[in-house]
Amino acid sequence: MALVYLFGSPDAHLVGVASTAGNVGVHQVCENNLGLLALCGVTGVPVSRGAEVPLAAPLRTAEDTHGPQGLGYARLPAPSARLTDHDAAQAWIRAAREHPGALIGVATGPLTNLALALRAEPALPRLLRRLVIMGGAFDYRGNTTPVAEWNTSVDPESAAEVFAGWTGAPNPPIVLGLNLTENIAMTPELLSRLAEAARSPSAPMSELDDRGTASTAGNALIRVLEDAMRFYFEFHHDQGEGYLAHLHDPLAAAVALDPDLVTCRAAPVDVELTGTLTRGMTIADWSGHWGREPNALIGVGVDPAAFFDRFIDRVGAFAQTLSRR
């Protein structure tokens, strides 16, 4: 949904996709990214394969949350393009060098690839115009452990390296943690609004539906989004959170294009790596106890209605263009 938002944004020029192992293995993530490009008729956007495992820990994936292929019940067409010959870390570096001072980076998974890129090119923070990270939880519960958010928990070493690497950079990353992104709750009603905006209405979803009920939308993109969201709705429902889904990553994509969508507070951030109970926890030193300069702009406020208005307008209009092809 984050990528589709960018496809539908006239102010975005996507120069590459770095596939990241996290919700499923990196091979499947590559297939998903290439398949989505094929579905959306997007050409000329290189997709690169990232690291198979985190920097220092075994890979954990989240098929229980996102399905065995990482897309819930959705099915994508076979890819029509191939991966780049270079890996995702090199993709970061090449793009930053080709667009110095102009490139906006968006990281919506574990930060393994970005950390590897930073090791190879320490000037990366000064080459990027802006970086938006979806990850962490600040003064808020975790969703993987009592204190840790999924992306950071999968590879806390890479997150710690990225925050350290951005210390002293002129543009600290904008960091959107669970404390902010869990305000962006997709519901069946909002999905129905999206289908109507795409002029492809479908049967409204409900927790009373049979598991895996397929979308009836005529638009292929809306079908994929609804089938993906149904699995995610069911997961949240089983967790006792309601028949909804938190759109963490699409908010990051939107903020990459327009930081004014959120209010932020600067602080030094670090990641706990050795705590028996707190590994992967993101800590913001709001009061300056560490004596360090801020290395992050932490999202602390967002207007969900404003985000969803923009998301539905852009993705709905983009889906309409696919129907006319």
Score class of each variant (00 low, 15 high):
213 T>A: 12
195 A>Q: 04
174 I>F: 15
151 N>I: 11
125 P>D: 03
117 A>S: 01
215 S>K: 04
209 D>Q: 12
131 L>S: 11
133 I>W: 03
132 V>F: 08
146 P>Y: 05
127 L>S: 09
157 E>Y: 15
215 S>Y: 09
128 L>Y: 10
140 Y>W: 13
155 D>I: 09
207 E>D: 14
154 V>L: 03
152 T>I: 14
122 P>C: 10
149 E>H: 05
182 E>V: 13
158 S>A: 14
192 S>N: 08
164 A>T: 15
118 L>N: 00
210 D>T: 10
116 L>N: 06
190 L>R: 15
197 A>W: 03
125 P>Q: 04
202 S>E: 05
172 P>F: 09
117 A>E: 01
127 L>T: 12
144 T>W: 10
223 R>N: 11
155 D>T: 04
222 I>L: 08
233 F>Q: 04
194 L>V: 02
125 P>V: 10
201 P>E: 00
212 G>Q: 10
189 E>K: 08
153 S>H: 15
205 M>C: 08
119 R>H: 12
164 A>V: 14
231 F>G: 00
154 V>R: 00
180 L>M: 01
190 L>E: 11
192 S>Y: 06
218 G>A: 14
157 E>C: 12
225 L>E: 00
179 N>G: 14
187 T>C: 05
177 G>M: 09
170 P>I: 13
153 S>T: 11
148 A>G: 02
229 M>C: 14
146 P>N: 07
129 R>A: 11
172 P>I: 13
195 A>H: 01
142 G>T: 04
214 A>E: 11
233 F>P: 09
228 A>T: 08
163 F>A: 02
189 E>M: 08
156 P>Y: 06
113 N>T: 00
234 E>R: 10
163 F>K: 01
158 S>P: 09
182 E>L: 10
169 A>F: 08
142 G>E: 03
143 N>Y: 06
156 P>D: 05
